[in-house]
Design a protein around this nucleic acid. Structure first.
Lengths: 153, 153
DNA sequence: CAACAATTGATGACACGTCAACATCTTGCT
DNA sequence: AGCAAGATGTTGACGTGTCATCAATTGTTG
């Protein structure tokens, strides 16, 4: 690392604002979810793709890919949700290493009851504040940043 | 909750992209920090404002305000950093309830050695990918979202 | 000043996330 | 077939984040 290329004033402000949005949005959504339906952001992240799958059954590996989580994180979260009866683990027929995750009736009821208020909250805090042009800029920008991170180091 | 106003296709895509940026950026930065300097994002978040304060001493309450953390989170993190010798707690003279946080020489060495590579990583993943116009849009958008969340409910 | 309220910080319990290590199974190579 | 390499999932340890609660102190108000 030679001469560090520091952030200029505007960049530093935007970076701090990004960190703040992260923090505040995450905790606002978590509070709303827990209060209105007893689900956490982590619960919701898994229940959403499960509820969209045929029969509410998804292979663990694929569920991980859908939400972008590592195996260990996924396994721990599924374990916690299993204890509360939101999902159930089943053996995988095609691949004896694998494990299937099944959405229980309790889990389906939970996500269906949570979704409207959750989406409404996202809309209220985020999309109601944005013009169509701004949404388009965000789309491009987020995708570009993701590409950069994926392109390694 | 009457008719839920669902997100349209583009909004849903952008929301997923936002969640992915969060996830990937946070973990990429964490990995870089831990690898190159043994600090976590949480460590860095506290060391940065401490290193900019006169004498490296900040009252706990104010440090919390600077980084936007709740008291409990701050107290736990300071405790962990104190164990590793990065900061030290001292009594507060003006207010016997309070507690002062002091950056130790070890802590200062850590943040000064970590900062250049960390900033370089933020620049590489984020700001090098953005035009000046896009940075300006992000500035406005982030601020508007923060205002909405702060305006309660 | 006394009583009540608010602020500040610490703590324990528990949820969440990451890493390294492990067991098990599948795949690919020879 | 047989073996090495990779894939899949789980586990334990530990760092991180939130909530409820507590103790101590300060602020406010009658």
């Amino acid at each position: 690392m030679e001469q560090p290329r520091w952030l200029d004033e505007r960049e530093a402000r935007v970076w701090q604002a990004y960190l703040a949005v992260n923090r505040e949005l995450h905790s606002a959504l978590e509070r709303q979810l827990v209060r209105d339906s007893g689900l956490s952001n982590a619960d919701y992240a898994l229940l959403a793709p499960l509820s969209e799958a045929a029969d509410g059954v998804v292979r663990s590996r694929e569920l991980g890919a859908l939400v972008g989580w590592e195996r260990s994180r996924l396994s721990h979260q599924i374990g916690r949700m299993e204890k509360r009866g939101l999902v159930a683990r089943e053996e995988c027929v095609e691949d004896a290493r694998g494990s299937m995750v099944r959405l229980t009736p309790t889990g389906r009821a939970a996500i269906e009851s949570a979704a409207p208020a959750h989406v409404e909250t996202v809309r209220r805090y985020v999309f109601d504040a944005l013009s169509a042009d701004e949404v388009e800029v965000l789309d491009r920008v987020f995708r570009r940043v993701l590409d950069r991170i994926a392109d390694g180091g």
